[in-house]
């Protein structure tokens, strides 16, 4: 900490959010969004996950060092650090598990085009590819091999009927508006439009909400 940091801390006009807090906010928002959205969302850009994983790793090392000296004063600090560590680990784990659940359900869909593949992280892509290959091999060895070769594929799209299951993009979601903006939604009887105000909670279809969420004007809740 140098003199600038100290000055900034006591300056009432300076209201910047520190990097760590912003990362936590981004992680929390990504987790809530992933838990609520019907489809897999893009892997967070900007190295958010690498940063958080890195920091968790360093914090664990620190805990290991601190457990060495059993001074009652540092003992409480240790409890606080470990509690927070567990909260972070829960967030990360729940986020990744929610993504794996979606990948498991619609593996072929997310592997079918390059755009969809780009949403997966490197690890997830490897997992999905191997998972799908294992499954297909299993099907082949147990029953598909007795079918004619033209019927042995799992991604047949002929006759306007696709074999690839896709998530329901029209499923309803709740969003919160982060700024005043016009919200449009398609309905059964009519298409609606409203002038949304900040912190409005709106129910609408995910396909209508998606542009707002991607532009950062709204978030899933």
């Amino acid at each position: 900490m140098d003199i600038d940091d100290i000055l900034r801390e006591v300056d009432p006009t300076f209201h910047s959010v520190p990097r760590e807090k912003r990362d936590l906010q981004d992680l929390t928002r990504a987790w809530v969004a992933e838990r609520s959205a019907p489809e897999l969302l893009p892997w967070p850009a900007g190295g958010l996950f690498e940063r958080i994983n890195d920091r968790i790793k360093r914090q664990i090392e620190k805990v290991e060092e601190m457990t060495g000296d059993m001074d009652p004063k540092t003992n409480f600090v240790l409890i606080v650090i470990q509690t927070e560590l567990e909260r972070f680990k829960f967030l990360v784990r729940s986020y990744l598990r929610a993504r794996i659940a979606k990948i498991d359900r619609h593996t072929l869909h997310y592997l079918s085009t390059d755009d969809l593949r780009a949403r997966l992280s490197e690890m997830e892509l490897a997992y999905a590819t191997r998972h799908q290959a294992l499954l297909h091999n299993h099907y082949l060895s147990s029953f598909l091999s007795s079918f004619p070769p033209s019927l042995q594929n799992l991604n047949d799209t002929s006759g306007n009927i696709t074999m690839i299951d896709a998530p329901d993009l029209d499923a309803a979601v709740f969003i919160r508006l982060l700024e005043d903006t016009v919200v449009q939604g398609r309905g059964v009887d009519a298409d609606g439009e409203m002038d949304g105000r900040e912190s409005d909670i709106v129910i609408l279809r995910w396909s209508d909400a998606k542009p707002l969420v991607e532009a950062g004007r709204a978030e899933l809740v």
């Binding site: 009887d189 439009e193 949304g196 105000r197 709106v202 609408l204």
Partner: peptide, 18 residues
């Protein structure tokens, strides 16, 4: 019931209620 318009606002609702 008549959710025909495609939009419904629940301004002010709480997280637990949701």
């Amino acid at each position: 019931e008549g959710f025909g318009g495609g939009l419904m606002s629940l301004r002010g609702v709480g997280a637990m209620e949701l």
